[in-house]
């Protein structure tokens, strides 16, 4: 398949290795992956912050950039959710490509039927299911199926896993104290597992979790799932 890779503004800017890993996982499976230079941001921040009109040109731009691909893969469930759910609902976008945008793990498991990528990652890892992957994009257990097939990876269950990390986009700044209080509990849960790595599908949540773990001097690091799946 000729796949478009939507790197997302957050991952492109701060988690480039997650984007590169996404490309290499897909290429190893024999797909042609293109990261269009024209891409920028899906408009999620504007949509979620009450600036719908400012999101419109960004959404139109996304559609124009990616409409020619068979499918678009993205290392972020919340961006996928924005495109799949909010574009038609809030921006009146009626383009078939919005239904062909997938988060990496759901694309691998549900669209390609692949669960074992031959990856190896000899670490103790806990998985944080991000809110939008659970409740908007609804990736189900796809990420866990993939992680269970990684050689050497010891997967440990995260207590209160489905609790939010407290990021919430502009919420993390506007309501910084509440955001941090929620994060503190998440970091505590992660530490209680003794994991070296906390992984998730979303760069934005990993920005929050990683920032909390690092500030607290905690042992665990935040790593995007694509990087684990691309490890050999």
């Amino acid at each position: 398949m000729k796949l478009g890779l939507f790197s997302t503004c957050v991952a492109d800017t701060m988690f480039p290795d997650a984007v590169r890993a996404t490309a290499s996982v897909l290429e190893r499976l024999g797909h042609e992956v293109v990261v269009p230079r024209e891409q920028t941001c899906c408009g999620q921040m504007h949509l979620n912050a009450g600036y719908r009109r400012d999101a419109q040109p960004l959404a139109d731009r996304f559609v124009a950039t990616f409409a020619g691909f068979e499918a678009v893969v993205c290392p972020s469930s919340s961006c996928v959710g924005t495109i799949r759910e909010l574009y038609p609902q809030l921006l009146g976008i009626d383009n078939q490509i919005t239904e062909r945008v997938f988060e990496l793990s759901e694309f691998l498991v549900d669209q390609l039927g692949v669960e074992d990528l031959g990856a190896a990652y000899p670490h103790r890892v806990t998985y944080h299911p991000t809110c939008h992957s659970l409740r908007v994009t609804k990736v189900g257990d796809a990420p866990l199926r993939l992680l269970r097939n990684v050689r050497g990876l010891e997967l440990v269950e995260l207590p209160d896993a489905t609790e939010c990390c407290g990021f919430g986009g502009t919420f993390s700044l506007k309501n910084a104290a509440t955001s941090s209080a929620i994060l503190a509990d998440k970091c505590q849960s992660i530490e209680s597992t003794g994991a070296e790595v906390c992984t998730a599908l979303d760069g934005s949540c990993l920005l929050q979790i990683g920032g909390g773990l690092s500030r607290g001097g905690d042992r665990a690091r935040a790593v995007h799932i694509a990087e684990i799946l691309a490890s050999r």
């Binding site: 790197s7 492109d12 290795d17 590169r20």
Partner: peptide, 15 residues
């Protein structure tokens, strides 16, 4: 105030 921030990376996939 309560969290470290990951810096902007040296290079970007879209580029």
């Amino acid at each position: 105030d309560s969290r470290d921030l990951r810096p902007i990376a040296p290079a970007h996939p879209s580029d």
